[in-house]
């Protein structure tokens, strides 16, 4: 869903750039609370994994493909603030090194595929965590639903921006229907990849998954308060 240069007019691109810069500023502050010596190395790896997975376009309909956006995955693995930083790095590298996504559209891409997917993904995930049983096995499932929802919302975000600053006058209802339709399909792939990625790490080291920490803290309190092993780092 990388937006190229030219889809949106200059004022809209400037505005999305300002929003992206502000969001990164907030994320830089918020990430301090999420990252410690143990989780910091994993944040870089999460970004690298998302970059790699974004290269893997999968077919979703005849002659159409999609790829993971990864905002929900990043938020759940490393925390929403750190997740946004990871996504911003991915889009910056894609834009500068690989000419994927326009340079004037970099802010737009960070906003739609980073800020929107991280925020929506994290909120849906937390909502589900509150509603579902507090079990570690629920974390990958909640992550998958959060990922599924985040993609069409990001697509709607594009429609919203196009309504404000699109360079061609087209019926917005049609655009919204088409964008949400295809991105619902892409969202299913997003959900599958997110489920697998979160589930794999949960299976070996659930304590490394940011979104699983509350569940783990509760479980330890309930079941075995005295046998908790802590790293001496």
């Amino acid at each position: 869903m990388h937006v190229p240069d030219g889809f949106l007019d200059a004022p809209t691109s400037v505005a999305t750039g300002v929003v992206a810069a502000a969001a990164i500023g907030v994320a830089l502050r918020g990430a301090r609370r999420e990252l410690d010596d143990r989780t910091a190395p994993l944040a870089g790896l999460a970004a690298a994994f998302i970059f790699a997975t974004q290269m893997l376009n999968f077919p979703v309909a005849s002659g159409t493909s999609g790829h993971l956006l990864g905002g929900a995955l990043a938020a759940i693995l490393v925390g929403p603030f750190t997740g946004l930083l990871c996504m911003a790095v991915v889009f910056l590298v894609q834009c500068l090194l690989f000419a994927d996504g326009g340079i004037t559209a970099l802010g737009t891409n960070i906003d739609l595929m980073g800020l929107v997917t991280v925020t929506v993904g994290w909120l849906v995930f937390r909502l589900l965590q509150i509603m579902l049983p507090k079990r570690i096995s629920m974390v990958p499932a909640a992550a998958a639903v959060a990922a599924l929802v985040s993609v069409p919302v990001a697509a709607l975000g594009f429609v919203g921006l196009y309504a404000v600053g699109g360079t061609v006058d087209i019926p917005l209802g049609n655009l919204a229907t088409a964008m949400v339709g295809v991105h619902l399909l892409i969202g299913i792939g997003e959900a599958a990849i997110t489920f697998l990625a979160v589930g794999s790490i949960i299976a070996v080291r659930p304590d490394l998954v940011y979104g699983a920490r509350r569940v783990l803290a509760q479980r330890e309190l309930e079941v075995r308060p005295s046998t908790t092993t802590r790293s001496a780092a």
Partner: peptide, 9 residues
């Protein structure tokens, strides 16, 4: 092996 079809957008 990734699909080379245009993406959703």
């Amino acid at each position: 092996y990734a699909s080379s079809s245009p993406d959703g957008l």
